[in-house]
């Protein structure tokens, strides 16, 4: 039972992050590989503010989102000028630089040793300790994220964002400020990813830079692609599949050293299979990026 609840919390955390990436990669058509860094910024902000300044959980959640958004404003304004594969490479480099900062700024982040003993969150006097309480908080955050993205996608802002994905030149010729839309969606997405990071930090009560590596970015992107880019529920499905799959493999009874490698093989096979038979993802309606679809 506690394993199921643990998986539920993990799915909630990853679903929030995948939803935030979907805003940029699915609806905006910008394949960002730096999402784990923003998720890490949220986790580190929450950890440091609760440990050193004794803040409550909700203020640290907000602070993490704001800080991550500020970093995204500064960096997004630069990297979003690049197109397509150059953007992918730039966000890849960005991810490596940001993780390197987490690893090497030892005075603040304690470097590769990570930050341990992050206290349990307190929300309006409610001290969260049990795993099912974390599942409830996670579900609330996930619901909030889903609501936000649904509203955003149906709003005029979301319409223009999707128009930019389909044809940037056309959107520009209609008088839309393409850079503004890209930066705003990138910033919103970074803030939302930080919310997932905050929950991760208080749930595990230990974080280290290894959890926010490029592999994590790719895993999150895989969730978006498998679940279905540019669909609201797609990332949730993708997160559920990629979080639960390794746990199911555990019950098959393979030795752990084989199972660990097999996990990578299965991620790869999943993505390849999805690309072959359902290029729009399990829940997706739009083709991913610009390839395929109506051309």
């Amino acid at each position: 039972m506690s394993l199921i609840l643990h998986l539920a919390v993990l799915v909630n955390i990853y679903a929030v992050i995948a939803i935030s990436l979907n805003l940029v990669a699915g609806f905006g058509g910008m394949l960002s590989l730096s999402h784990a860094a923003f998720y890490g910024i949220g986790a580190y902000t929450t950890a440091l503010l609760t440990l050193r300044l004794d803040w409550g959980f909700l203020p640290t959640l907000a602070a993490g989102a704001v800080l991550s958004a500020l970093v995204a404003v500064a960096l997004g304004a630069i990297v979003l000028r690049l197109k397509e594969e150059l953007f992918v490479i730039a966000t890849f480099a960005l991810q490596l630089v940001l993780q390197n900062v987490m690893l090497n700024w030892t005075e603040l982040t304690n470097g590769p040793l990570g930050i341990a003993n992050i206290p349990r969150p307190v929300i309006f006097g409610w001290r969260v300790t049990d795993i099912w309480e974390f599942a409830i908080i996670g579900a609330c955050l996930l619901g909030g994220a889903l609501w936000l993205v649904t509203r955003l996608v149906r709003s005029p802002f979301g319409r223009v964002l999707q128009a930019i994905r389909e044809d940037e030149v056309l959107a520009r010729s209609q008088g839309h400020d393409v850079e503004y839309f890209k930066v705003v969606s990138f910033v919103l997405s970074a803030g939302l990813a930080a919310v997932g990071g905050s929950l991760y930090a208080v749930y595990y009560s230990y974080i280290d830079p290894g959890s926010f590596s490029i592999h994590e970015s790719i895993l999150i992107l895989a969730m978006v692609i498998i679940g279905g880019a540019a669909s609201v529920w797609g990332p949730v499905v993708g997160a559920a599949i990629l979080v639960c799959l390794p746990e199911i493999l555990r019950f098959v009874g393979l030795p752990t050293d084989i199972a660990a490698h097999l996990r990578q093989v299965i991620y790869g096979l999943c993505i390849a299979a999805i690309m072959l038979w359902r290029p729009r993802g399990i829940m997706g309606r739009e083709a991913f990026g610009r390839a395929g679809g109506r051309d």
């Binding site: 630069i78 990297v79 000028r81 690049l82 150059l86 490479i89 730039a90 480099a93 960005l94 490596l96 630089v97 390197n100």
Partner: peptide, 9 residues
Amino acid sequence: FFLLLALLL
């Protein structure tokens, strides 16, 4: 990687 970023720009 900072160099790479700067160059891409």
